[in-house]
Amino acid sequence: MQAFGRIKRIVTASADAIILYFDGTNLDDANNACHHMLAAIDSKKGSNSWAWLRECVPSYDSLLIVFDMTLIDSHGVYRALSNLSTEDIYQQSDSSQAKGNESSAVIDIPVWYGAPNASDLSVVSKKTSLSIEEVIELHTSTTYKVYAVGFSPGFAYMGDIPEALKCARLGTPRKRVPKGAVAIADRQTAVYPSESPGGWNLLGLTAFDMLIHKKEQSEARLKAGDEVRFVSVTEQEYRAGLQVER
């Protein structure tokens, strides 16, 4: 299948799924192209001619499209995508950007750096040859973008962290990382939405809940494209935050 627009490659994933890979001058650009396409597809959801659409799963620079094989084949999916005019895609991106601008100033995530059960600060300090203060300073000095949400519910992959803070994963993953642990690995940073195993370097804890809990429809609090900043808080402020989040 011939690629078009910002799509670099279209590849079969299974009998009922194709995956699109996007191009850009850098990752940020490709990630934006992916989300413009996703928004354009989402706007068609519910229309009869798109009844075959089962699910779209975006990531850094790719978008998986799952379809109902009884209603369409991959060629039909390709036609539907290529018929999305550039206008569709741009309009969507404009309106989603406008929407984004209203609601989102940068989202602040308060972090108690060095919380005893979630701190690899000394390890990170050794790996990066930075002092602990410098590590915290660098981590809080950058505004991050949410590139993708996945792996587990609400887990947001954010980047890029400053080059100086780049840090390999732990040699042996932890069996238990506490809920709310703020972590870094390579050029990425994230918050563990719930207790789980994990191999990232931990910097501290946040009371910020990564899931919005609703009766039947919990959802991820951060969405791909959101902008995030980490703010250093004291243990007291962290504990007060836990009360509020509950």
């Binding site: 299974s14 799924a17 790719s62 993708a148 996945g150």
Partner: peptide, 29 residues
């Protein structure tokens, strides 16, 4: 880069031993 894993995807990590991803697979890998 991590990308969406579809049902039945056959993943091959460094050791070359295939893993077939099932219903409760993580969404990205």
């Amino acid at each position: 880069r991590s990308e969406a894993i579809h049902l039945g995807a056959i993943q091959v990590p460094g050791d070359g031993q295939p893993i077939v991803m099932m219903r409760d697979r993580q969404t990205l890998g």
